[in-house]
Nucleic acid binder design. Structure first.
Length: 876
RNA sequence: GGGUGGUUAGCUCAGUUGGUUAGAGCGUUCCGGUGACAUCGGAAAGGCCAGUGGUUCGAAUCCACUACCGCCCACCA
């Protein structure tokens, strides 16, 4: 044996080396070729501080399959990797680290703090980079980007300033979601809801009794709202009332508004415009003033008398106590409601009014023919018109729903880490000016002193530019012209709104084109019980890196790929990964066997159709051609799981279980053995790049890397339909005999005799007597066109052939009768089904002719089988 | 409340536009002799495709309703 291939594949031994050889080859970097249409994927950038988790792993696995497939097809395939600065997440992490040293960010100050962040990011970015490599991702590292790169920051400023000048970005006093812990605003979709058991306080409120969960906001009340059709309060609408409060009386006005649910509580609501979204809107509609009582740290403001400085919760307690003393509390009930919390730190959100920057999503600015459209309209239009395809398509509906309800997007964050808002205020007259650099002279007052806006931009602002900022925009680079719009955006459906929607809006605005043609959304990975993996239950968490270490990257990739359709969640557990490790090992051993049977000389010979000889050869080649066709079409249709399953099945069941077994006898054909192996390695490569690359080293006729090989093409000349069918009969004969042996309890090692009444298949069967005898473990095999049943033998009936196994003492006539009758019954009930079909007029008239023919054929076959079984019964 | 996905073998899931007697992996049972693989091989058991009704010559597949499970969005103070 000339091969030094171990009996089991050891992934760890090869993976890193193989990855390095790919990187060295330069094949990750596509060549721009204007005669070809490129294929581009912008990698969804993991957080720069992150550690690779299963979400990344599944993304990398799927995208790598697409990229490798296209690359092998000769398409210039660009997969652009990068990382995201993730402002709030990163800042929180660094704050934590500093806190561990007993300091706060304020001790350091902005500049020093940002230095710390930079250091931290530099470090962890390396981690994630290497983890992406571990997954085998064949992305173009020469084009790697980071959202805080100089180039990308320039793009951010450029877009901001253009939007500002277009009047799309404005600054205004609006109610916003405020996280008192992060001390920053949050966008609407950055707020999450948690169900919480709370109290509902029924309070006496002047002439009203009303229910509230937040009595402390009473200090900011300016109105009471009722439903316009509520008769109870009809006469009170428009009037003003003095309300007794813990800090003395205050005045409210009663307004009628549809937003009030007359069924809830008493049907009257206290209105605190400064600290509730719903109330803010009511107040706006009725021109009610607002009174702010809670500050940015979540504490009561100075206008709250003795409660000033308390947190809202402290204040609630104190006020309820005081109100009880005053007899203002009627009752307190338990109450379950949704509490809004920060998606980053879990603190409860405090809505408050604040001066922030917003993007106007409704202002028409994008030129479209003669008219102008808002970024919202345009974003809906490109999906409606199918310029952007969303897969699975059901997410289109979700997308439209979200888009249609989109409000202006609050983009300023009071976070230090991020892209600083490029707006400067004149120290003389407060006049704001948007510019990349500090402006020279104020156009209003002529002063030259400026103060920059302290806020940074929402992290999604920069990610929204990802597909084009990474290609060099605003410069008109060669890359941008060639690779944009990108081909596919592949990501989890959980960030459809966060990210996908924003990319569509931002790209439409900045480039007046779409960011990508297709959105492919994958599902979330869940634990074995279907729950979200969570850090609080570490036993349910699977660390992809640990799994890679244990089972190899290829196995991990397969376990994330196979068994899940687009947009569907998938359960993952260790046994599944172990199962695919077994498959990887099967590939290894299948190849090992093939290579053991091919000489160096044979390896060098080019495959010629004349090399095809046996029935088995023709059968396996036919199967291969079918596989090539289906895998290619599945991959083009984003059916990764199906493609993977088909290759799995072919290798294990067809190639290894049958073809390799047959190759152990007289029909061994090294040329076909190696030809099929090579093609299969190519088809497999996008799925399991490491093991296939390693095997290619031995199986390849040259010294080239598999990653750069040509994708197999369907070849009609290698399809042998008739022979493939004949081979199926040989399989059935072998399986039939094996079954019978097991059923009769024949010792596994025992050689038995067999007679086959072969009918028109006699010749073909006789030609394949060697594999039949070996695989069914026969001592003698007699094949004749017709024959009489030997004494004391069992009969196996297949189509038009019959197999007799003289098992002498083992055949119990009675038992045999039972078995045959059972078989007869099955065939007869099947016959009934077919007959019913063929007797129905509708079927004959309406079903496709092919199908009718097929059914008639089956009828004939079944009838023949029944006749033969009956014969057997008679002869018993 | 609005939307949306699921319900198929003990478990995890495939099943493309309706068209063989509904498949796979794991698990289970029995048997392991064989020139790659025990991370393996051979044989087998196991299903009223959630329920009801409809469309159709024909439904796991299409439609309607129901039941349970899940997710997303909105939100009631």
């Amino acid at each position: 044996m000339k091969f030094k291939i171990e009996p089991a594949y050891e992934a760890k031994k090869y993976e890193d080396k193989i990855y390095k050889s790919w990187e060295k080859s330069g094949l990750f970097t596509p060549k721009i070729d204007h005669s070809k249409k490129p294929f581009t994927i912008s990698m969804p950038p993991p957080n720069a501080t992150g550690v690779l988790h299963l979400g990344h792993a599944v993304m990398l696995a799927i995208e790598d399959i697409m990229i490798r497939h296209q690359r092998m097809k000769g398409v210039p395939a660009l997969w652009l990797p990068g990382t995201d600065h993730a402002s709030i997440a990163t800042q929180n992490k660094v704050e934590q680290l500093i806190e561990e040293k007993g300091k706060t960010k304020y001790d350091l100050g902005r500049t020093e703090f940002l230095k710390e962040v930079k250091k931290y990011v530099e470090n962890s970015r390396d981690t994630i980079r290497n983890q992406i490599r571990k997954m085998g991702a064949s992305c173009d590292w020469t084009r790697e980007r980071y959202t805080m790169d100089a180039g990308l920051s320039d793009a951010v400023n450029e877009v901001f300033i253009r939007m500002y000048e277009d009047g799309l970005i404005y600054r205004g006093n609006r109610i916003v979601n405020w996280c008192p812990r992060c001390e920053s605003t949050l966008a609407n979709d950055e707020v999450e809801y948690e169900e919480k058991n709370d109290k509902l306080y029924w309070i006496k409120y002047g002439p009203f009794t009303l229910a509230t969960t937040r009595p402390e906001t009473k200090l900011g009340d300016t109105a009471v709202a009722v439903h316009p059709k509520d008769k109870r309060y009809k006469d009170m609408v428009g009037k003003k009332y003095k309300i007794p409060g813990v800090l003395g009386e205050f005045e409210v006005i009663v307004v009628a508004d549809d937003a009030v649910d007359p069924e809830f509580g008493s049907g009257a609501v206290k209105v605190t415009p400064a600290h509730s979204f719903a109330d803010f809107e009511i107040a706006e509609r009725h021109n009610v003033p607002s009174k702010s009582v809670i500050d940015e740290k979540g504490r009561m403001k100075n206008n709250c008398g003795k409660y000033a400085g308390m947190t809202t919760l402290e204040c609630r307690k104190a006020m309820v106590r005081d109100m009880e003393k005053m007899g203002l509390i009627e009752k307190i009930e338990d109450f379950k409601h949704n509490l809004s919390v920060c998606y980053r730190c879990g603190s409860s959100i405090e809505p408050l009014i604040s001066k922030q920057w917003f993007i106007d999503v409704d202002k028409p600015v994008i030129k479209d023919g003669g008219t102008k459209k808002s970024i919202k309209e345009k974003a809906i239009e490109v999906v409606e018109k199918g310029e952007i395809k969303i897969l699975p398509s059901r997410f289109k509906k979700t997308y439209f729903h979200w888009m249609n309800n989109l409000h202006d997007w609050c983009i300023s964050r009071q976070i230090w880490f991020g892209h600083r808002i490029p707006v400067w205020y004149c120290k003389g007259c407060e006049h704001p000016q948007a510019s990349k650099e500090k402006p020279s002279k104020c156009e209003k007052c002529g002063k030259k002193e400026w103060k920059r806006d302290p806020d940074t931009l929402d992290t999604w602002f920069s990610s929204g530019l990802w597909t084009f900022s990474t290609l060099g925009w605003p410069k008109e680079t060669e890359d941008l012209k060639y690779f944009h719009p990108t081909s596919v955006m592949e990501t989890g459906y959980d960030i459809l709104f966060f990210w996908i929607a924003r990319m569509i809006m931002m790209t439409n605005y900045a480039l007046n084109e779409i960011p990508f043609h297709t959105v492919y959304l994958h599902g979330l990975i869940r634990d074995r019980t279907g729950q979200k993996m969570s850090k609080s239950r570490p036993e349910t968490c699977i660390d992809p890196l640990e799994m890679i270490e244990k089972y190899g990257t290829d196995a991990v990739r397969l376990s994330l790929m196979i068994g899940s359709g687009p947009g569907n969640d998938m359960r993952l557990y260790e046994e599944k990964i172990a199962g695919y490790r077994n498959f990887v090992n099967k590939i290894w051993n299948g190849a090992r066997f093939a290579l053991m049977n091919v000489s160096d000389e044979d390896l060098k010979k080019e495959f010629q159709p004349e090399m095809v000889k046996s029935l088995a050869d023709k059968w396996i080649l036919t199967g291969l051609q079918q596989l090539i066709k289906e895998v290619d079409s599945d991959l083009n249709g984003y059916k990764f799981s199906e493609a993977g399953t088909k290759i799995y099945e072919f290798i294990w069941k067809q190639y290894c279980d049958w073809y390799l077994e047959i190759s152990k006898g007289e029909y061994k054909n090294p040329y076909v053995l190696i030809f099929v192996l090579r093609n299969v390695l190519k088809l497999l490569h996008p799925f399991v790049p490491f093991v296939t690359e390693k095997l290619w080293e031995h199986a390849s006729p040259s010294k080239t890397l598999l990653i750069g090989e040509n994708w197999p093409e369907h070849n009609k000349k290698l399809v042998f339909k008739k022979e493939a069918e004949s081979m199926e009969l040989i399989h059935e004969i072998i399986t039939g005999i094996r079954s019978c042996r097991a059923e009769m309890g024949v010792e596994a090692g025992k050689y038995i005799r067999a007679f086959i009444h072969g009918g028109k298949y006699s010749e073909e069967i006789d030609k394949n007597r060697e594999p039949i005898m070996r695989l069914a473990r026969l001592e003698t095999l007699i094949v004749e066109e017709t024959m009489k049943k030997p004494e004391n033998s069992k009969a196996i009936i297949l189509k038009e052939t019959k197999i007799y196994l003289p098992l002498d003492a083992m055949v119990d006539a009675e038992q045999e009768m039972v078995r045959l009758k059972k078989e007869l019954e099955a065939k007869e009930s099947f016959l009934k089904i077919i007959e019913k079909k063929l007797n129905s007029k509708g079927f004959i008239d309406k079903a496709p002719k092919e199908l009718v023919g097929k059914e008639q054929e089956r009828l004939k076959e079944t009838k023949a089988s029944i006749a033969r079984i009956k014969e057997e019964i008679k002869s018993l």
